[in-house]
Design a protein around this nucleic acid. Structure first.
Lengths: 183, 183
DNA sequence: CTTTCTTAGTAGCGACTCGCTATTACATAA
DNA sequence: TTATGTAATAGCGAGTCGCTACTAAGAAAG
């Protein structure tokens, strides 16, 4: 009888996901390619290898490998071989890729039209939900550096105690593969 | 600076959608097939034709036609030709299909573990969001009969004033293609 | 030093989705 | 009767998906 049915919420998330996906058949890309492109644009330099993209996208490395090759062929991202580890590759979003990402998004617009109070409670609920679901699945959280246990604020930027690397102000707001939510 | 970024909310919905999808490669079905099967189980008898499924799934009739054929071949749904309109087909979930749908779902479990207050505000936010996004897109709402402007309560069941059809108590809780939210 | 793990990335396979453009089979209105 | 519109499907090409199998390179243990 409860109208707060877990079923209804699941349904809504699923439906919204599908509507967003349908909206993302544009500019010659498909939803998966948009997801990979947008992740790469928001991830820091330690988190842009195929393995990490596939972790984020909840897909296998093989699948993601193909997606990234396709994006590279379209000139939206570029391959950058690692200097340290000769097995490893990283990808960077090109100017053309960044331009494409400025396209307005259906759900983002709908979110903007929400009242601030609705927005913050929606966000809180989704945040908790995502944390729970991802933990159950054994997936990483993929938050931004400034909310991570390994992060120390240094001046305007910061420092990652896990990777022993200084971070620029911009980098502290990027997504990291090694992210672990601070208490 | 706002941590209620529309971007963050969009991101969370997208990520949850992907995680749910990854979780739905099971029992020989894929995410799209699960979505169609679960819709058919929850839709009323006026809303189970390929056209209506494709409206709901935000896909073309051609794509959905193939998905439904695949489900039928697996014996999870069965084809029912319409008596009135000889162009039209309807689908019904079989016993085997219904049995499959009882599989526990990752996100549904996560939702259940939410506090009741969190759950209701999450639900409210998603409801509004979905309504806005669907209207922007010109999509139908696909609610259940008992919340529809065309619905009149009659005893334990109801009556649809649009289709001029009586509804059993069960039918008033099913999804309808013609649904229009009552004020 | 070599073996022996382990990890990063990729190819290729079969099944499938997706949007697209016909095409067929009706229904309905002029 | 003849348009006009709608329901469903077939077939096309590009691409995702999980999978297995593979190469190459780093790391660890003998």
């Amino acid at each position: 009888m409860s109208s707060n049915d877990p079923e209804r919420i699941t349904e809504l998330i699923y439906r919204l996901g599908r509507v967003m996906a349908a909206d993302e058949w544009a500019e010659g890309l498909n939803p998966t390619q948009w997801a990979a492109l947008s992740y790469l644009a928001r991830a820091n330099k330690f988190s842009r290898a195929p393995s990490q993209v596939s972790d984020f996208m909840a897909a296998t490395r093989g699948t993601v490998s193909q997606t990234l090759k396709a994006l590279a062929k379209k000139g939206l991202i570029s391959e950058i071989p690692s200097a340290q580890d000769k097995r490893s590759i990283s990808y960077a979003v090109t100017k053309q890729g960044a331009a494409l990402l400025r396209r307005p998004n259906l759900v983002e617009e709908a979110v903007s039209s929400l009242k601030a109070s609705e927005r913050s409670s929606l966000r809180a609920g989704l945040e908790t939900l995502a944390r729970t679901a991802l933990r159950q699945r054994g997936s990483r959280s993929f938050g931004v550096c400034k909310t991570c246990v390994h992060h120390r604020k240094v001046g305007r930027g910061g420092y990652c105690q896990l990777l022993d690397e200084p971070l620029s102000p911009t980098e502290t707001t990027q997504i990291c593969h090694e992210h672990a939510e601070a208490a």
